[in-house]
Simulated scan of single mutants.
Amino acid sequence: MFDHIGFGVSDINQSREFFLQALSPLGVGLAMEGPNSIGLGKQGKPSLWLYASSAVAAPLHIAIAAATRAEVDAFYQAAIAAGGRDNGAPGLRPHYHPNYYAAFVFGPDGHNVEAVCHRPQEE
C-alpha cells in the first residue's frame, strides 16, 4: 500500500549510520540524500525517509520485509552491532501465523525496527 514513509530523527548522522548498518543485510541502502534528510531503499528507490527534526515522532513500529530467515538473523546481529537495543531476538511468532519469523530492535530514537520473513524455513 505505501510507496514511502518518512519521519524525523533527533540525530540524522547517528540514525543514518544505524539504519544503513541494520538494514544492509536486507538489501536496503542509501538511495538519496539531501541537506538534512536521507532516503533508504532497495535498488536506488527511497522507501524510508529520515529527516533531521527537533520534534521527533513518538516511537514508531517499522517492519521491513526479509526474503529469508537468515536475513532476519543477519539484520538482528547488524542492528545490535550498530547500537540498537534488543526488543525480541530472531524467532517464530506463531501467534501471528505459523511462518512469522521476526526480530525486533529499538533504534536510536526508540523506534521499534523489525525484520520479518513470512516464508517457511529454507531447506
Rank of each mutant, 00 (worst) to 15 (best):
Q21V: 10
S15V: 07
I5A: 12
P94V: 07
S47R: 13
F18Q: 01
I12E: 00
L40W: 06
S54C: 06
S10R: 15
P35V: 08
P94L: 06
S53D: 15
A22M: 07
P25N: 02
A55V: 08
V105E: 00
P35H: 14
T68D: 00
L48P: 00
P25W: 03
V113C: 02
I64N: 03
G83I: 11
P25V: 05
I62L: 14
M32Q: 15
P46K: 06
G8Y: 06
E17P: 01
F18K: 00
E71M: 09
C117R: 07
P35W: 11
I12Y: 01
L26R: 06
Y51L: 13
A81K: 11
I38H: 02
Y76C: 11
F19E: 00
I12L: 15
A115P: 09
S54Y: 07
R16G: 02
I64Q: 12
G29F: 07
A89K: 10
S15P: 04
Q14W: 00
G39H: 10
L23I: 07
A78S: 13
A63F: 09
S10E: 01
G41E: 06
A82Q: 10
P108R: 03
E122W: 12
G84I: 07
I62H: 01
G110Y: 08
A115S: 12
K45R: 13
A63S: 13
A58L: 05
E17V: 08
G8H: 08
M1Q: 13
Q21I: 09
G6N: 11
M1C: 09
G29E: 02
A79E: 01
E122Y: 10
G83E: 02
N87M: 09
S10P: 04
M32S: 14
Y101A: 02
E33T: 12
D86V: 04
N112G: 06
N99C: 05
A102D: 09
A58H: 05
S47T: 11
V105T: 03
P94W: 11
E17G: 02
E17I: 06
N13C: 10
A74Y: 10
P90L: 10
Q14C: 02
G107P: 05
L30Q: 11
R119Y: 10
V28A: 02
L48S: 00
A78H: 02
A115G: 04
P94C: 05
N99K: 12
A67G: 14
E122D: 15
A67Q: 15
L30D: 01
L23D: 00
V116Q: 01
Y51Q: 12
G110E: 03
D73N: 13
G91C: 10
S10Y: 09
I12C: 03
F75P: 04
L60S: 11
G88R: 12
A79L: 08
G107A: 13
E123D: 14
Y76Q: 05
A102N: 04
L23P: 03
Y51T: 08
H95M: 09
F19Y: 15
S53C: 08
